[in-house]
Amino acid sequence: MLRKLTLGLLLMAGCAAAVLAHHGWGSYDASKPITVTGPIETSKYENPHATITVKAADKVWTVTLAPVSRMQSRGAPPELVAVGKTVAAYGYPSTVEKDEIRAERITVDGKTVEMR
C-alpha cells in the first residue's frame, strides 16, 4: 500500500511539474509571432482544428486554424480556405512540431477572420 501511495505521489508530482512548464496558448511561442503568406496547398476542414499547408517564400508551413464550428460562425467556410487561395496567416510557431504555426488570424480575399 505504501509503495502504491509513493508511486502515485511521484506520478502526481510529474503532473505538477508539467503544470509549471505551461506556456500560454498550447505549445506555441507567442513571443515570436510570424506571418506566413502564400497559396494554400492542402486544406483539411476537420475537427478538432482545421489545418492548411501554405507555400510561403521560405518553405511550406502547416497552419493550424480553429475548430470547424468556430470557422463557420466567424465567416470562414471551407471555400475561404480552399486549395489555391492566397492566405496571410498571422500566428505563433509551434515549440513541438517543425514548420507549424497556430494562426491568431487569417486574411483571405481581403477578409480577416479571427481564429481565437
Binding site: L9, L11, M12, C15, A18, V19, H22, G26, S27
Partner: peptide, 24 residues
C-alpha cells in the same frame, strides 16, 4: 481509508491531466 485517499488523489490528478493535454 488509505486506498480511498489514494483513489481521490489519483482521480483528481487524472482530471487535471485530461484538461492539460491541450496545453502540451
Amino acid at each position: 481509508r488509505l486506498s480511498a485517499l489514494l483513489s481521490l488523489m489519483i482521480w483528481i490528478s487524472v482530471a487535471a491531466c485530461g484538461r492539460l493535454i491541450a496545453y502540451f
